[in-house]
Design a protein around this nucleic acid. Structure first.
Lengths: 269, 269
DNA sequence: TAGTGGTCTAGACCACAGG
DNA sequence: CTGTGGTCTAGACCACTAC
């Protein structure tokens, strides 16, 4: 079983030099995809040894660079572990999610096989208070667009979503029917490209508003996820505050001594 | 200021070929450390352009490989962003923490300038129940060593810590005074090497026990961090459940389109 | 058009694991 | 000892940005 899987991905795109796509040759992605596939499909189980690097070089008719880069990717994803002199091995799997899934509730929901829903509480253009302005990197009083929605999974309310955008981005939000689904998708289609995001996760008691919307008593525990999203130049595109009912979602993250995860735990006082 | 900083790190270890340390030449770490330093010290501020890769090659008398690897590291740490044709730029900083800080409360606490404390509730060798056995990858009924402690920062109680170890590891825990500080450090000194860990973060209401220890009312919100730690062969070394008072700690994580973070959000039902 | 980063090649030496 | 992964060199072509 673990002997000699066939690289289905490679054959079609093989020949180096004959660049395959617009972004340049992506051998390393082909190799990573192939291995990721083998792991996720169970063809390679936790504890199994991966093919050696030289073996992979041969199978994909490529040099060691792309193969090593693919291994580095899988290592960063927490799928495998490597060490000098030893074959790399498959670890217990904690599936990573795509960047899109982590930014869009709608998309994430669909990915888990649930049906996302939303009920818009209100949407407004309004002047920013000092705290929000600081988060968005604008001047207090500058206009922002805010959208508060109650989100549901399979018709069960699970989260109160509070989104805030600087006007430049908010323009596109105002031109959008907030009851129709994924804002993130709409923004992408409008040319707003989120490049990276920072999330802060903690627990809070439900405010009066939270409590009413989620149908719990005031002060009961909620998982709060605050997010700031940026474009590739570091300009803030969004500041949000999502509060989930406990027992509906959790965050899972892996870190290893070799490749520290971009995660930090912080003291709050 | 951003013109021509001097690579203090490089000069002493320069000459390739003349291997610098036991683990092989580590030019890429020298380059990464140099840049990280420049960023963290404020020598390079958010928005500033990094030196070009060729420039760095010259300064460190090295080839492009190590320099590119260093850049990849900083990218994974969320410190910089890169794109074709453009100089890489420094992002708004969200400091990453070392692996050790994420595993050891004691060490993390000290890193933030607070004084860690602990009050041991009980420590025992006992048979594992089925759920715990599954988490530790052992057979139900196999002995485990458990340690429950109330942890504090600057003498304020902040967290209830419940640690469970398979006997092989637990032996070392039993030979340790749990009121004396960092178990993690003790384990390391005993030759137990944690290679990677998986954390799951969510919010829960305080149990009766939690509530009494942390002096809150039952059901009030707590941030729960469950952790499983493994050695490099994937053998489970620890299963733990930490519950923090809200407002004491938060988790911050960065992700970017280019290098997805090893994080996933999961539905719980 | 020059400079830059993204990708790849084809070699090389080393440290360590395992037979 | 052989095989493995970790590291490095010194070239190359391409796509894109900024001038």
């Amino acid at each position: 079983m673990t002997s000699s899987p066939t690289p289905h991905a490679a054959d079609s795109t093989a020949v180096p030099g004959s660049g395959t796509s617009a972004t340049g040759g992506l051998q390393h992605e082909a190799v990573a995809a192939y291995l990721r596939d083998a792991i996720e499909s169970g063809e390679l189980s936790p504890g199994d040894r991966l093919p050696s690097e030289s073996e992979l070089c041969r199978r994909f008719s490529t040099s060691r660079g792309p193969v090593r880069r693919a291994m580095a990717t899988l290592r960063a994803e927490g799928l495998i572990a490597s060490a000098r002199g030893r074959r790399s091995v498959v670890l217990d799997t904690v599936p990573t999610q795509s960047f899109d899934d982590l930014v869009s509730f709608t998309q994430w929901c669909r990915g888990t096989g649930k049906t996302p829903g939303q009920h818009t509480l209100w949407m407004a253009r309004r002047p920013s208070d000092p705290a929000l302005a600081a988060n968005l990197g604008i001047t207090a009083g500058d206009p922002v667009v805010s959208l508060y929605r109650l989100r549901s999974m399979d018709d069960e309310p699970v989260m109160v979503e509070r989104l805030n955008y600087p006007l430049e981005v908010g323009r596109h939000v105002l031109a959008f029917d907030p009851d129709s689904g994924s804002i993130y998708q709409h923004l992408t289609e409008s040319g707003v490209d989120i490049d990276h995001a920072i999330r802060t996760i903690d627990a809070v008691g439900a405010s009066a508003e939270d409590a009413e919307l989620l149908d719990v008593v005031e002060g009961s525990p909620l998982l709060r996820v605050r997010r700031r999203a940026y474009d590739r130049d570091g300009v803030t595109l969004e500041d949000s505050d999502d509060r989930y009912l406990p027992g509906t979602v959790s965050f899972t993250l892996t870190s290893s001594r070799g490749t520290p995860a971009p995660v930090s735990m912080r003291s709050l006082d």
